[in-house]
């Protein structure tokens, strides 16, 4: 068989190079869902208290970010965008008003631990 024929019949990739994923993921661990752990937290200054829960495994990092708002400066004003935490109910960050700014977050992602299919 000629080399060109071999190439036509081959079913596998000739060469694989990864430029992003190995560095990003090699040291990650997989968090496990822990729906028993619950925390009650205030989402922002305009929403009521919400009963939420979060997956375990993130420890201090999660707690650090859970109560810190993030946002950005634009046109000399600071716009609060929400909180860097999946532990906050999406309802806590929904909606917009002059305090929150024009961007609302948390409207997706409340529906499961993994899409796995």
């Amino acid at each position: 068989m000629s080399p060109s024929n071999r190439k036509v019949n081959r079913k596998k990739s000739v060469h694989i190079q990864l430029i992003l994923i190995t560095a990003v993921l090699a040291s990650c661990h997989r968090p496990t869902p822990d729906h028993q752990r619950k925390v009650y937290m205030r989402g922002d200054s305009t929403a009521g208290y919400n009963r939420t829960h979060y997956g375990g495994g993130l420890g201090a990092v999660m707690w650090y970010y859970a109560f810190r708002p993030y946002g950005s400066y634009y046109g000399g004003n600071y716009y609060r965008a929400g909180y860097y935490s999946g532990g906050i109910s999406e309802h806590a960050n929904m909606g917009s008003n002059p305090v929150k700014g024009a961007v609302s977050r948390g409207g997706f992602g409340g529906n499961g631990f993994s899409v796995s299919s």
């Binding site: 999946g86 499961g112 631990f113 993994s114 796995s116």
Partner: peptide, 11 residues
Amino acid sequence: TCLKQTLEDLT
């Protein structure tokens, strides 16, 4: 985009 707390989906 994918969910935040799942390594399988992120991978």
